[in-house]
Design a protein around this nucleic acid. Sequence first.
DNA 1: CACTCATGGAGAAACGTATCTCCAAAGGCT
DNA 2: AGCCTTTGGAGATACGTTTCTCCATGAGTG
Lengths: 385, 385
Amino acid sequence: MTAAANQSGRRPTTSRRLERAGIRDVAAAAGVSITTVSDALNGKGRLPDETRSRVREVAERLGYRPSAAARTLRTGRSGLIGLTVTTYGEEPFTFTEFAYFAEMARAATSAALGRGYALVVLPASSRHDVWGNIALDGTVVIDPPDQDPLVSELYRSGVPVVSDGKPGNCPVTAWVDNDHEAAVLGILDHLSEAGARRIGLLTGTSTDTYTRLSTEAYLGWCAKVGQEPVYETYPAHDPAAGAVAADRLLARPDRPDAVYGLFDPNGTDLLAAARRYGLRVPDDLLLVCCSESDVYATTEPPITTLSLKPRKIGTTVVNLLIDAIEGVDSGTGVDIARLFPPRFRTAGTGPPPGTLMPTELIVRASSQRRSPRTTVSPPRPPGEV
Amino acid sequence: MTAAANQSGRRPTTSRRLERAGIRDVAAAAGVSITTVSDALNGKGRLPDETRSRVREVAERLGYRPSAAARTLRTGRSGLIGLTVTTYGEEPFTFTEFAYFAEMARAATSAALGRGYALVVLPASSRHDVWGNIALDGTVVIDPPDQDPLVSELYRSGVPVVSDGKPGNCPVTAWVDNDHEAAVLGILDHLSEAGARRIGLLTGTSTDTYTRLSTEAYLGWCAKVGQEPVYETYPAHDPAAGAVAADRLLARPDRPDAVYGLFDPNGTDLLAAARRYGLRVPDDLLLVCCSESDVYATTEPPITTLSLKPRKIGTTVVNLLIDAIEGVDSGTGVDIARLFPPRFRTAGTGPPPGTLMPTELIVRASSQRRSPRTTVSPPRPPGEV
DNA sequence: CACTCATGGAGAAACGTATCTCCAAAGGCT
DNA sequence: AGCCTTTGGAGATACGTTTCTCCATGAGTG
């Protein structure tokens, strides 16, 4: 009692009942020390159940909520995970990556919450004030550019960083990516089997890993099978440029009879361009694009898409990050090596450890010359495009 | 100098250079007190520019980053704003609200970052552990149910809460919503002008404000113009139920010649049902649905949609919240009354203050008997951006 | 009885910052 | 010369936890 009175009586003010109850108030009301309160509430220390429940009851009665700020300061853990979003101009995320990001973020959020962490959305530009003001236990970055100063700075300051997308040249704790090469090769084979003789590619001008790996895989495949590459590039972040590039691709003298578009809107872009040139899909032109949108299930015709499985990626990224956070906590994050079965992990000894996730090709009418099942869907009265 | 040595020498350990530099290290290195460091870095106090820049330089050299946790504890401000997402089962957000939420969250994120705050995504279930572990300056809630215990608890503990969607019965600092009644009436008038004689409604079974207000507006309109209401309801969160309900609606003996669907997927649902019954859109059936998806710009035919302008809502909600956070800081949030011009605000004296935002009807082919303009849109010469 | 040991719990030291209070020194004024 | 004011900066405290250390007390054991 003396203890309780002593510690809680520290407050010089007299009648302030406006403030939220603190641990000292609970201790005073329960007639114990703050140590006991803390231990009782957190299930630590050696206390008889009677004391524990009594303290809990008092805390409940006073509406006591531990200060997250104080806990974070003391324990060094905030339970917060940063999620970077690239920003072009005012708006976060670009049109192209929106669906992917949304799905990925949704899964990441779910995974984080399931393990007691919350995601905080942060801009990819390191210069932003807000970065310094938030205590992060770790960060997820999406497709960091080569030599990303943000990632480097985070890593240097000891914050675990897990990247969605194989990082170019910055040190990360771990990364997760799709096997883009395998995916592209799979698509090209799929199109070949469907009868394509000359496969074109709609790709981007930027140098991120996804674009680069995919394009290289395409070029490599072309070299292997002896097809002349037929591709057009455009700045992927420009929502209007895709349509123009699609048009260019189909306007070429060596017009392809099948096209794979690397970005989400390319399906629509290519479909529109095909219409413009009087090409029937899939009869005259086979089409595949990379997209997470289920829009392509209901286009006319439905378009075959490659899904990067953003939900799996998001889940994996977050789990890897939390493992790193809870596993090591000492600047050098090497422990992860044994946390995960090396099934998917690349066999390199050199860090950072990477995980490759499979993609999924959702085959629809646009990439098959003969309709996969009965074409009954369109009784489709005269109203045609 | 003595001061500096004194304060930094407090650390008993000898050679630990592994830890991040703290304010004391900077003070020691610069030969000043931590007060001076703090003041110099935060632009406070009275210091000559020379001292300021010297301290800044030393801090930079040591790679000093103020501890966000300590700052939060001291100042009582975390710079964090919670954003609740409703969860059904494992995944956050439902199919129905996904597009709306994504757009709204995107705008909210942008607005928050612009004012130095970050958004942290949190589950709408108050029982989740994570709520207690995070220091929030305020919270945005989306469509809270009546008597939401989470909102009540937050409000009671002094955290400002701004709601997207007029709250049923819980106390909030402020709320923002669309004028759903005006929106529905506008749509019904629009359909009438297009020649509709009997307008049907596809609505939900839940009792949230959006569904309730919209349905009531429809019923009121029917009563006013003397039309017998024709509507079907279904659980909006079930992605499959919408198609069934759409089918039911068009299978009725008193089949409507125009339909408004309250939820995002209803456009597709209704279009498919119309095809099934051999109804041409817009000739036999006029169609409007509420959606944020631009899919409906490219359906056949394109479908008229009502946009709730989630970006505007998101921006407004966040700005209101931050105003409340920075304005009052004392439990009772009444200051907001004068922070915003009362243009849109409801004139009631009773709290909480609400803001009504306009909606936008994007008129497309599905709700017009005669094509609005020449349908020529695609000459579309390649050289366009 | 003299011990060891387990039990229950109190004290106090951080965690790292922001800020309030206060003091010394250096002008500026009559 | 004495007083007031401004400038520059140091000291100390509080923010609210968690946790390490340590001390009573009582029970078991020889």
